[in-house]
Design a binder for these strands. Structure first.
Length: 868
RNA sequence: GCCCCUGUGGCGGAAUUGGUAGACGCGACAGAUUCAAAAUCUGUUGUCUUAGGGCGUGCUGGUUCGAGUCCGGCCAGGGGCACCA
């Protein structure tokens, strides 16, 4: 027997699959559809192990579903717009398009080596005008339905480079290239009106039964619905000369109004801006706050600081009570109204603040276990349930009732000709800003005309394509300084006008690509028949890092596309799976420089450098990253062991949602399996009967046992794959391998006919079962079993239920919950008979030891517990 | 600070609705084969033990005939975050 040679075999099968076109999704079929999609890659240049894991999992599902009789759509494309292409252009003086297409070419050929069952005819790249022309059309359709709005928003502005920076280009408040302190600048930008769907996006999370709870919780919190009251505090006009008569605050706790001891506004609140003009102290405080940034979690640990405005406001319920208004670093302009009232007793931030500035702390909610006479709040705010105290007309109510009564009362009080308060629902979700001041993105199909204002590019003039003749010598957006591209005429009045030079956020490209895959060549945005048939995606797979933005934006897009009539449903992804990362040990030399794994030789628990012999420090296991050099190149693994080994390893041992540690031992084990499976088929084929031979009339006990084992494994693996438990499917294959190895060794050539038949049945099932995971090997095995057909076209083995129905069962005998013995019984033996048999077991008699039997619990087919 | 998740042998991890804890793989050890090694194959491998068993799923308390699984409290590790009023 020759060793299985993956390097020789794999290309053969890849070519056969391609030539026969068996992975092409069928257009006209009566079969049920199954749409498998993995998050498409950004063409960075090379595939990495994360891709291998992602696409292997998807491929297993696609192959399994195809074998199970589904019409499978399993496409691939490229999320091809984005900043790295522009960075490459700046660094290497290559055009973003050339760099991107070169990368796509490389990565496509790398992916093809993995033997993925992809319908490559549907490949799309988002930077292709044939793709983005439809995105531009969609944008115009959205615009007509008021799904797009235009408003001001802040951007990071680099004053030296005179360019807008992404968050990741701002390092410690400085521009990444210029090093200049970043300023904020207001620009008029385009937004998708995602907040319009806030309630629906939240509500329908419940219907996503095949999504991980984790992702749903994250989206729930991101949307952040809260019910409360907006109320106007009347400004005491004596205190400051400002135009505002009231400050509007939002609260979810109107029940604690009697405990209010101050008000606070955000540093960028309009009133703060007015005051800062005349008060240098306030101005200084505001700039201190701005330096803190608002995006980092560690600010939550930062000290709560504030600055008195000098303004006071009147308490809505308590006559003559005034509250000082502060500007405070923990109040956010983006949420609610940018102003709060502080009730220190029942909010930790307010309490920290009050303690710092020696403000009143009035408890108004009394926990049930406390005595009102000596109930005090010192440095821990009470946020639990209780009864209202110290609150006039709210006293003795529970929190819920007090909230309602307070809100109702506020609605009845008139102030400046309107109700002082009103019940409101607030979301933390903000509209999606889609304008980017960059070249390598989809142009926004808009023309700005001095006379007509914002004018749409007529659909007949689409696509608005990117000009090729650009350079990146100077910072900033090349579209903005392009000599001719920018200048055009107004479609309405035909006077000179300017193109919008902003391009779309790349999340726009990825918010609808899954729909375009249904009809990638259609002249329409989406082919109605195709999307109605294929959508939703049945199984979507990708990294959990996209749990919020990409998935939420896609859900927004489906809703919007439904409104514009392009699709009929609202949810894009019926099933979602988020896979874990690929990790590896890290290595450093004595100088503290990172080393690649191939530079290191491991000896027991220590390591040394492969060339110098210098001692190497083994660091913690971390997710693979270029910066730490703990990466394994998929290409290297494929060329050394073959794609099946890489695929097999990445599916083994670790549950798919967890991080998997890449180890050399693991790869060796995977490769060992490949060889072992080949050997089993090779040896087994000599013993088994001919293919397609009729099944014998009678089976011996032994041949029946082989059949039973085979069908049990079929059932187990089918269940594992249905639940995406790839690691368990692998374990069952190992179990089957061990069983087959022993069975073959026990049966020399001159065996019983029924055994020869049972062995063939098991061998055929065997390669079909590991087929989705190691598809090339499976084809070679299938071929060795005498078939000229492709295994990829064979149906999934079906489990004969009669063969796995058990006639007998092992019953565990427990005495007081401890195992004392086991007996084998017929499955429907009555409890009385089981007991009788159990009481004859020596160890059981010993354990009972003449004690009185209190109770006997019998779980049929499983356990008998005797309580003494 | 808030939210979420996870703690099982030397390691990765199995264990349906609460019902034999440790499947399967790695590593280690022993043996076979070999001049020798690699590869391969066969065993053993949670722990203590007086060899009858005892103890074992982060710690601790509870529910139960019975808890890795359910409930309370704690500890540790990981992840997310936009201080969300």
């Amino acid at each position: 027997m020759e060793r299985y040679n993956a390097q020789e075999e794999e290309p053969i099968w890849q070519k056969k699959w391609l030539d026969k076109g068996i992975f092409k999704a069928e257009e006209n079929t009566n079969k049920s559809k199954y749409y498998v999609l993995e998050m498409f890659p950004y063409p960075s240049g090379k595939i990495h192990m994360g891709h291998v894991r992602n696409y292997t999992m998807g491929d297993v599902i696609a192959r399994y579903k195809r074998a199970s009789g589904f019409n499978v759509l399993h496409p691939m494309g490229w999320d091809a717009f984005g900043m790295p292409a522009e960075n490459a252009a700046m660094q290497r003086n290559t055009h973003p398009a050339i760099w991107t297409y070169e990368n796509i070419k490389n990565m496509r050929s790398q992916l093809k080596l993995l033997g993925l069952s992809i319908d490559w005819d549907r490949e799309i790249a988002t930077c292709d005008p044939k793709y983005y022309v439809h995105e531009q059309k969609l944008f115009l359709d959205f615009l007509k339905k008021d799904l797009v709005i235009r408003k001001n928003s802040k951007v990071n502005w680099d004053p030296v480079d005179k360019t807008v920076l992404a968050n990741e280009q701002v390092i410690d408040g400085l521009g990444w290239r210029s090093g200049a302190p970043v300023e904020t600048k207001e620009l008029t930008q385009w937004f998708f009106n995602i907040t319009k769907f806030a309630d629906d996006l939240l509500l329908k999370l419940d219907d996503l039964k095949r999504w991980p709870d984790k992702v749903k919780v994250m989206q729930d919190r991101w949307i952040g619905k809260s019910t409360g009251v907006k109320l106007h505090f009347e400004i005491n006009q004596k205190t400051q000369n400002i135009p505002n008569k009231t400050i509007e605050v939002f609260t979810t706790r109107p029940d604690t109004l009697f405990g209010a001891s101050f008000c606070a506004i955000a540093p960028d609140h309009p009133i703060a801006s007015i005051l800062s003009k005349e008060n240098p102290e306030i101005k200084k405080f505001i700039s201190t706050c701005q330096k803190q940034g608002t995006t980092l979690a560690n600010i939550s640990k930062a000290e709560k600081i504030g600055c008195k405005t000098g303004i006071t406001v009147n308490h809505p319920f308590i006559k003559d009570k005034e509250l000082d208004v502060y500007i405070a670093n923990f109040v956010l302009m983006e949420y609610g109204t940018g102003a709060v009232f502080g009730c220190p007793a029942h909010d930790q931030r307010d309490l920290d603040f009050a303690n710092k500035y020696q403000l009143e702390v009035i408890p108004v909610v009394l926990p049930s276990n406390q005595d009102p006479k000596n109930y005090k709040i010192v440095d821990e705010a009470f946020t639990g349930e209780g009864i209202i105290i110290n609150s006039d007309f709210l006293n003795n109510l529970n929190i819920e009732d007090a909230k309602n009564l307070a809100a109702d009362t506020l609605e009845k009080i008139q102030i400046n000709g309107r109700a002082q308060g009103e019940k409101t629902i607030t979301f933390r979700l903000r509209d999606w800003g889609i304008s980017r001041q960059r070249y390598w993105g989809c142009p926004i199909p808009i023309i700005h005309c001095k006379k007509c204002g914002v004018v749409e590019v007529p659909k007949k003039d689409l696509p608005v394509t990117l000009p090729d003749d650009v350079n990146f010598d100077v910072p900033g957006n090349p579209l903005d300084r392009h000599a001719t591209w920018k200048h055009t005429s107004c479609p309405k009045c035909h006077n000179p006008a300017e193109r919008e030079t902003d391009t779309f956020d790349t999340f726009v490209d990825s918010s609808w690509y899954y729909a375009r895959f249904c009809s990638p060549d259609s002249e329409e945005i989406l082919d109605a028949k195709a999307v109605d048939y294929w959508l939703p995606v049945d199984q979507y797979i990708g990294g959990v890092e996209h749990a919020i933005l990409h998935l939420l934006y896609s859900r927004f897009f489906m809703r919007s596309m439904k409104i514009t009539g392009h699709v009929k449903i609202e949810e894009p992804f019926d099933g979602l799976f988020t896979q874990g990362m690929v990790t590896h040990e890290t290595y450093k030399n004595k100088k503290g420089e990172w080393l690649f794994p191939e530079e290191v030789i491991i000896e027991g628990s220590s390591a040394k450098h492969i060339d110098t012999g210098e001692e190497v420090v083994i660091g913690p296991i971390e997710s693979m990253s270029k910066s730490k050099k703990n990466i394994i190149d998929p290409n290297a693994i494929v060329s050394m062991y073959g794609a099946d080994t890489a695929r097999w390893f990445i599916l083994s041992d670790t549950p798919p949602e967890r991080d998997i540690q890449w180890t050399d031992n693991g790869v060796e084990a995977a490769n060992k399996f490949i060889q072992k499976a080949w050997k089993i088929i090779y040896e087994g084929e000599r013993i088994s009967c001919q293919k397609e031979e009729k099944n014998p009339v009678d089976f011996t006990d032994e041949s029946l046992h082989i059949r039973k084992t085979t069908h049990k494994i079929i059932s187990d693996i089918t269940e594992a794959l249905d639940n995406l438990r790839f690691n368990r499917a692998v374990a069952y294959i190992y179990e089957f391998s061990n069983y087959l190895t022993t069975t073959l060794a026990d049966n020399p050539k001159n065996i019983d006919k029924s055994i020869a038949w049972a062995i063939r049945e098991s061998l055929e099932a065997y390669c079909k079962l590991f087929g989705p995971m190691a598809p090339h090997l499976a084809e070679s095995c299938w071929n060795h079993l005498g078939y000229t057909s492709l295994l990829a076209e064979q149906p999934w083995p079906t489990c004969d239920k009669n063969l796995i129905t058990k006639e007998t069962a092992i019953i565990i005998i427990q005495v007081n919950g401890k195992k004392r013995g086991e007996i084998e019984i017929l499955i429907d033996t009555k409890q009385k008979d089981v007991e009788q048999k159990a009481f004859n077991v020596e160890n059981v008699i010993k354990a009972i030891n003449d004690s009185a039997i209190k109770k006997v619990i019998y779980v049929p087919g499983k356990i008998l517990n005797v309580v003494v």
